[in-house]
Design a protein around this nucleic acid. Structure first.
Lengths: 341, 341
DNA sequence: GAAACAAGTGCAATCGGTTGCCATAGTTGC
DNA sequence: GCAACTATGGCAACCGATTGCACTTGTTTC
């Protein structure tokens, strides 16, 4: 059973195929009665336009790809939700592909889709900067949780967020903290460390860093063990998954959180308030980020539909979204260590 | 900057476009030297074949769509992972779309992709049976977490899994349980209740049912309150998200889990052992299910590539995967209620 | 040395749409 | 009553691939 085409519809409605095409795409170019006849015929046949046959001609697929560095990270749920809503509102299809934290897989996935979508939203991309630039030279790209000079991006405001963490730690009497780093390719991870270490002194805090770790719950075990050797009274983890793993290991080793060690994560994933103790973490408007990313991409498409033109002087949209520190039970006053009360 | 086409490659290699096409698709049909020249030219130009121009001719897109009823449910993580791996091994792209627990959205998403993919894997589809049959008449479809007569499917073995739960409850001295149902459209939910209530008597258990609830953590609150009115000593929830919500509410109301009430979920999501107490739940080989679903679909495609033929007599592949009860801390001996110890 | 055959390559039609251009018919203006 | 214009719809080329068919060559066979 073949899917009906415009030719089938045309025959049934007694018009030329071009008229059918116009009845859908440029309604003002066909007569009222004709259009209705065409639409009725299409309806009876269950005609669905073939977006790729169209794309062959127009270059527009009405499809956006969202590449997620790790789909198993709940952090991306709301991002996906928001993006999907916005895409649907613009009558675009959003397809999601997973990069499994691997630059190679990410590259392959992108390559497989280049001819099928109008643009890419890369969430927490692990690709080297140069690759991103090359990609952006030929396709429409919006970054999420990453910033790179000429590319449009949406990211949480790391600097102010990290200050909130530092402020919190300082006010609770901590003298320093150990940061458990995420994967080497993570721009967000680097930004977090830069912000934390850069401003630590201002708050009278010593910043120490260990890692990198692939940010999963199980990897939190090793991170916790290493962190303990630094004798820190506070641990800041690259994200909530790692933070949760760290808490589990600390508890398993007989330490109390937060009495002995405070633990702070990033992202405020849904599991953050299911743990014992519940996790203090830096959250942000994820769904909104998803919506904005799609919006940015749609704008790019509008300015140069189809493949990328050599425009170069597009306004550098670089959105920074406000974050908020969600205070829960995993962070508290520093354990007295001689001088501090 | 236009993407290069076979025509660009052909010009550069000094051959006809058809030869370029064959150099990729039917290597044995072109001379060795010519093929190498073509491949070199393609490489220099960065040529990527346009899968949809090809599909126009061949009907094969090498793309599979996976429709997930709720992408925010961690239960589907491993399913997606497994499916992705298997798809990649067969050089197919797997795209994921979200149905947000809504049959309408699910239908729209499917419709938007019908002409772009070779087949669909529907995970926990919420569509009515008749819609699924109609869809399957025109496209290749594999169901996951759902069974429907002529369609191939992959699902956990509910019957044996539920017996494990009943056995567990009976052995811990419970006299019955309250089941908190999932959404009305959930086949899996219906199957679970059927299996639990059908075999309850055998184990000397009274089965009670409340709901339906949309299975999220927050909805667990209402479910817990209703369940308490049934004075059950054990609650079995439609899935882990709901179970976690139930536990939170019970704890908030001053009840102890499992001393006062035992709670059991389904799916064994990653958060199930992060909660306090950790959650007893029925798990299964999710990643394997994903792989099998793709495999089933690939088999369908092989037998009739492109659009569905009127074959009808395909072998009814209906896979049932073994489950296992993961005993954790949320279930235990029944609270004494007069007669029982 | 001519016929038969195989390998390698090109030509042109085709898939399902879109769109520039032209043809027709009906309106309008004077 | 005729030119000029507008609204509508058809023709045919095109997008980027695939593929049946035909045409060259070179090789084999007798």
């Amino acid at each position: 059973m073949q899917q009906p085409t415009i030719y089938d519809v045309a025959r049934r409605a007694g018009v030329a195929p071009s008229t059918v095409s116009r009845a859908f795409g440029k309604p003002e170019r066909v007569g009222r009665a004709t259009r209705e006849r065409v639409l009725a015929a299409a309806d009876e046949l269950g005609y669905v336009p073939n977006p790729h046959a169209r794309a062959l001609q127009t270059g527009r697929h009405k499809t956006i790809a969202m590449v997620i560095s790790d789909i198993a990270n709940p952090h991306f749920f709301e991002l996906i939700r928001g993006a999907e809503q916005r895409a649907k509102a613009a009558e675009n299809t959003l397809v999601i592909v997973n990069a499994e934290e691997s630059p190679t897989i990410e590259r392959d996935q992108i390559r497989a889709l280049t001819r099928s979508v109008d643009g890419f939203i890369l969430a927490a991309s692990r690709l080297p900067s140069q690759d991103l630039r090359n990609l952006a030279a030929k396709h429409h790209v919006v970054l999420v949780d990453r910033e790179l000079d000429p590319l449009p991006s949406v990211a949480m405001d790391t600097a102010s967020g990290c200050r909130q963490i530092l402020e919190h730690l300082a006010s609770m009497g901590h003298g320093g903290f150990t940061y458990c780093a995420g994967p080497p390719g993570s721009w967000m991870g680097a930004a977090r460390w830069a912000a934390l270490s850069g401003a630590a002194e201002e708050y009278g805090l010593r910043a120490h860093r260990i890692g990198p770790y692939t940010p999963t719950v199980v990897n939190g075990g090793a991170a916790a063990d290493s962190a303990l050797r630094t004798e820190a009274t506070a641990i800041v983890a690259h994200n909530d998954l790692l933070a949760i793993g760290i808490m589990r290991r600390l508890t398993a080793r007989g330490l109390r959180v937060p009495e002995d060690v405070s633990v702070i994560g990033f992202d405020d994933i849904f599991a953050a308030d299911l743990t014992t103790p519940t996790l203090t973490t830096l959250g942000g408007p994820d769904a909104h980020a998803g919506r904005l990313a799609v919006e940015l991409l749609l704008e790019l498409l509008k300015s140069s539909p189809g493949l990328k033109e050599t425009d170069g002087e597009e306004s550098p949209h670089r959105l920074r979204l406000p974050t908020h520190l969600v205070l829960r039970d995993s962070s508290g006053a520093a354990r007295p260590t001689g001088e501090t009360a």
